[in-house]
Design a binder for these strands. Sequence first.
DNA 1: TAGATTGTTAATCGATTAACAATC
DNA 2: TAGATTGTTAATCGATTAACAATC
Lengths: 215, 215
Amino acid sequence: MNRDFSNVSMAVIRRLPKYHRYLKDLLEKEVYRISSRELSKLIGFTASQIRQDLNCFGGFGQQGYGYNVEELYQEIGKILGLNKTYTTVIIGAGNLGQAIANYPSFIKYGFKLMGLFDINPKLIGMKIRDIDILDLDYLEEYISKNKVEIGIICTPKEVAQEVAERLADSNVKGIWNFAPVDIKVPKEIIVENVHLSESLFILSYLLNEKENLQG
Amino acid sequence: MNRDFSNVSMAVIRRLPKYHRYLKDLLEKEVYRISSRELSKLIGFTASQIRQDLNCFGGFGQQGYGYNVEELYQEIGKILGLNKTYTTVIIGAGNLGQAIANYPSFIKYGFKLMGLFDINPKLIGMKIRDIDILDLDYLEEYISKNKVEIGIICTPKEVAQEVAERLADSNVKGIWNFAPVDIKVPKEIIVENVHLSESLFILSYLLNEKENLQG
DNA sequence: TAGATTGTTAATCGATTAACAATC
DNA sequence: TAGATTGTTAATCGATTAACAATC
């Protein structure tokens, strides 16, 4: 553990969650051993790429045998940091914030939701899976008191930058941003974006392109 | 219009929504002209890359001047197919489905939501922005009657593949999938995924890696 | 005209794929 | 041992960056 993977390219890193998911599926199907060739057929990456990717983190396989599914699943989980827990808050307790609060992977993989925050008096005081929706005014106080590590922005885009700055000033370590803006925070704070509209626009592009080709 | 961009790489295509967003911001700030160098400073791509990207679709710029923001915004919108409208349904009317139904970009850019579908009797009969939540049993009938083009999967992962097949059999053209599985449908159907858990795991990775480096 | 900036070609860089020796 | 499959190097492919002539 605690090895340094900072030389591994983000292209490889961004494939890890998919390996993790497919290995979990295999375990649930009681498959305990797999070769890069078989995994390739399932996951759609080339066998060569799979071997290259996994080798960035150490030799998990065995010549003539393949990979132990359980072991590989656990190792990739550790590389992704899924063996740890993180404390989180959600800012914006509307549908999207509530959806995230109830999202199974979020709950399952050690992301501990401490509270949700909103400015809407109708929401403040409510609970989402037993977790309070609090007044946004108390954000900073709450974060420092509860040592919150991750802030999840589910607000409208107009206030996302301001919320991000308040999170940054409160010393969260990371931000998971769902607002369709590129927030600016000091570079020591990790930001991961989910830009829904970009994904939607790509779908639109692909549909449109197909129509153009077909006349 | 109706030009064939099938030779343009997906790496370029996936940057278009970001150009579109920044150009919109510029227009709102009443900036009507911009050079690749200035845009580079805003958006974070190199000026060279910006010129290369835009040139895949034709010469929108003018030597010595730069790009007309309004024109470029409109052109990229057209390339992305945002000048058209698409009819859509959402399957799964829980928090996530409702969040998508209310998502501003979704409403604004011509994605017409015709109905939401669920199996939960408590939800069926309700309305989300005046749009009915209907019984999933009527999905196929409704799609063919209303010529629905896009199905949006907001169900739990366990039923996502089945829903995808029902959408495919009903001849939707595209699927926007939020379930954390890779759905399998005939290749003429466009699928665009939003894998929230993958994004979350990358955040976890980056936080964890940073901690490892700092000891 | 002189200055600015594009469009476009060439050079570089990085990521993917192929090949095969090592070895279980 | 023979067969299978990894780990790893080398070859290929594609994407990004640099450079500069064209031109507004």
